[in-house]
């Protein structure tokens, strides 16, 4: 794996892709974008070289919870965070139980987003 950190964003909202791209740009991360869960699963089948994954809940073709279940089976070592407006305790519990490591609730601010990214992928950690 290269030293440059990579992550996969699975979200059908182009504005979220734009926000995330801008927010992480100072960190030098490489962001790979797909727009539904099926694309996300297909991407991971072809390429497992990611440091973390951000996953929306409500998406066409394959929704977030179904995608999460698939990804946890395929790449249990890669931390996954939901990024969603499903904000109840029950929603959070369901996703953490399936295997999500983090949960970013919309709306959020840039500082909250970057803090969660830091939890998923500490910038001090050298990727070997």
């Amino acid at each position: 794996m290269s030293a440059k950190k990579r992550f996969l964003l699975i979200d059908d909202s182009k504005s979220i892709h734009a926000f995330v791209r801008e927010a992480v740009s100072p960190l030098g991360f490489e962001m790979v974008s797909v727009f539904d869960g099926a694309q996300g699963v297909a991407k991971i089948q072809a390429d497992k070289n990611f440091d973390f994954i951000l996953l929306d809940w409500e998406m066409p073709v394959m929704d977030g919870p179904t995608t999460l279940k698939e990804l946890v089976k395929m790449v249990p070592h890669i931390p996954i965070s939901m990024i969603t407006s499903k904000n109840s305790f029950e929603n959070l519990k369901e996703m953490i139980t399936i295997g999500a490591k983090e949960y970013i609730m919309k709306p959020f601010t840039k500082d909250i987003f970057l803090e969660k990214i830091q939890t998923l992928c500490p910038v001090e950690t050298k990727v070997s």
């Binding site: 965070s81 959070l92 953490i96 983090e102 949960y103 609730m105 601010t109 500082d111 909250i112 803090e115």
Partner: peptide
Amino acid sequence: QLEVQRGLSAP
């Protein structure tokens, strides 16, 4: 929701 997300991990 914003306050609880500042500094607290999901677990």
